[in-house]
Design a protein around this nucleic acid. Structure first.
Lengths: 230, 230
DNA sequence: CATGTACCGTACCGTACGGTACCCTGTCAA
DNA sequence: TTGACAGGGTACCGTACGGTACGGTACATG
């Protein structure tokens, strides 16, 4: 029978060689993972990039040089392994902090550009694409919370990070909007546009760093054109 | 050994009760499909909505009241069946034609709003989500052209349909842009924003017809704010 | 009526894979 | 030295499923 709890098994706390790193990530993520376990999850990530979520547990064991039995002991079942991997990777994604000092038009624009660049860089990476594909695949099947996890650490996290910036911009008289969610949607759309869905559908010519920079600057510019003040 | 040709087997041309319907769809789609075959593909669509692409060929045979042997005879293998289904559904999607008469600001805005509404309605439907999920899932694995098909009939088709409208708008002095692709990206982003990726990741509260109307009108308004002239 | 064809239903085969059991080695503590 | 234990390696089991074979039926055509 499958285990009851999701995420990581609480009753198996191995070596604990490294201290629990990132704590404030937005979700319970890589807290109780030993070094060895992180190696395993790294192997899973590599496999996912290489062949999506169509890897066998045996392949993971082979790639990570550990036994299947250990994998099942640590992660419960295949889905737990997948979930732990996605959680862990999601906890590693970092979005640039916004400057705490008083906003100016230029610093706001720079912050928006930086956000967009960071975001576009992430979502066009092989790793993110592989994870999003897996999450999308599993989102249909009730079981498995992959979609929820990626959603939380993806668009929702971006929204939560951006809203303070928008509110600060409005407070500083630089932006004008009624609904902050509407403003977020506009910025998200201008920045991402069809980039992500095309990448997910397998289009090969993804934007490079140079194009991402251009697209981000344009998105920030256009957003300010729509919601800018003065 | 598996059959050589993709798509539909050319050597099996059954009943052919109905005349080959839609011809100018943008891709070779539902030409040589008999009524019975369309019934089968309908069953596949229903199954895909219900359980993604995790259906067995036996389940298709059961749902369509036909034999597995016939399925393999018609479609070669499971992937051929899936591909034929996606092609067929894609060929059914219709995007509203744009008015041929002289554009005005209002008719342009209405056309843009109509486009956005049509598009948002499609991509938030259960069927489209199921198909996009399947295409995204298979896009990673080299094999299977599902991603390509959905891409062609999705964003790319939308782009090809919109560009004439944009060019007409520019010719009429209503729009100003240098790169029509850039203008498309902006409109796509403003219209779709995070709606599709959230739906694909399993978020349940998708926009209804009312919200779609609102979002579409706003997208058109904002697009005109960015690229409008006069 | 005889023959061929298209198709349904189902039994069957091979394989891949999730999950479990068992054995063995290295480590560490008493 | 000895025993407990974590964990690697591997054989094994059950099942699900892709794909094939075959028998039976309806129908069309000579």
């Amino acid at each position: 029978m499958p285990v009851m709890n999701m995420s990581l098994h609480p009753d198996t706390a191995p070596k604990q060689t490294a201290a629990p790193a990132d704590a404030a990530s937005g979700g319970t993520a890589g807290e109780g993972l030993s070094e060895r376990q992180r190696e395993v999850l790294n192997a899973v990530l590599t496999l996912m990039v290489a062949e999506g979520d169509r890897f066998s547990v045996a392949a993971v064991a082979r790639a990570a040089s550990c036994s299947k039995e250990t994998l099942y002991k640590w992660f419960g079942d295949r889905d737990g392994l997948l979930t732990a991997t996605v959680r862990w990777q999601a906890s590693k994604v970092r979005i640039p902090d916004l400057p705490d000092k008083q906003l100016t038009h230029d610093s706001l624009k720079a912050a928006l550009t930086g956000f967009a660049t960071s975001w576009l860089t992430v979502i066009t990476s092989d790793l993110s694409i592989a994870l999003n594909r897996a999450a999308v695949s599993h989102a249909g099947s009730g079981k498995s919370r992959l979609g929820e996890i990626v959603l939380t650490n993806g668009p929702i996290a971006m929204k939560q990070r951006l809203e303070p910036l928008f509110l600060a911009g409005r407070a500083a008289g630089l932006l004008a909007f009624d609904d902050v969610g509407e403003a977020f949607r506009a910025f998200f759309g201008l920045a991402v546009a069809d980039t992500q869905i095309r990448a997910l559908l397998g289009e090969d010519n993804r934007p490079g760093a140079r194009e991402i920079e251009t697209m981000s600057a344009r998105a920030a510019q256009q957003f300010l054109g729509l919601y800018g003040q003065g």
